[in-house]
Design a protein around this nucleic acid. Structure first.
Lengths: 100, 100
DNA sequence: TAGTTGTATAACTAACTGCGTATATAAGCG
DNA sequence: CGCTTATATACGCAGTTAGTTATACAACTA
């Protein structure tokens, strides 16, 4: 699973949103998603860890999850070359020539 | 399928990249992806059309595909609030306070 | 009009994803 | 030590996805 597939899942985007406000323990995140069971949230967190979007630090019995600064940057790097497409409304040909 | 799932697929990101250089007919895109059959590429193009990332205009017998300027903007809008996370390397708490 | 070319759809299948239940692991607590 | 709490993993299942082959549809062409 790569970072694009990771953020394609709405629940994981929700987790990212929660973690962007402040760090949360795993249990707090479970409580924030009442539609899901604890194992379901735990697996989403594992995926977010594996693609580098979040990190977990142990705090006694708990695990505190935090958003990693460089995780989403990989998506931003991908989207950057296309940004002028909607910002300037250039035609594809004009863009191509600009790149020469 | 939403725009996030659409771009999560590597082949579809490849198609977006090709279309960002210039418009292509469906056949040209098929030729650019020799690992896939024509129906497979056609289905990817349908998905990209359905989520608004590309548009097709008929040109006689052919269909010319073009990248839509506003398609990827929805992903950019989502990522924008998190951009400061990697740009400024602020802590989550500092960001939260900034938003007050 | 018959054949050919360009593209889309149908039908099927293998692989993958996300979920819940059950269970394991590990740390705090009496 | 047991017992409880916090979190992760195992497993099986239902739904989805991406691929193929076969076929339909539509537009040129001789």
């Amino acid at each position: 699973m790569d970072v694009f597939e990771a953020v394609a899942e709405p629940t994981r985007r929700h987790l990212i949103s929660l973690l962007s406000e402040r760090d949360h323990t795993a249990g707090e995140l479970v409580d924030s998603l009442p539609a899901l069971t604890q194992p379901a949230v735990s697996r989403h967190l594992r995926i977010l860890r594996e693609v580098g979007l979040v990190e977990a630090r142990p705090d006694g019995q708990r695990r505190v999850y935090a958003l990693r600064p460089d995780g989403l940057q990989r998506i931003d790097d991908w989207i950057t070359p296309y940004r002028r497409f909607w910002r300037d409304h250039l035609t594809a040909l004009e863009q191509h020539l600009e790149n020469q």
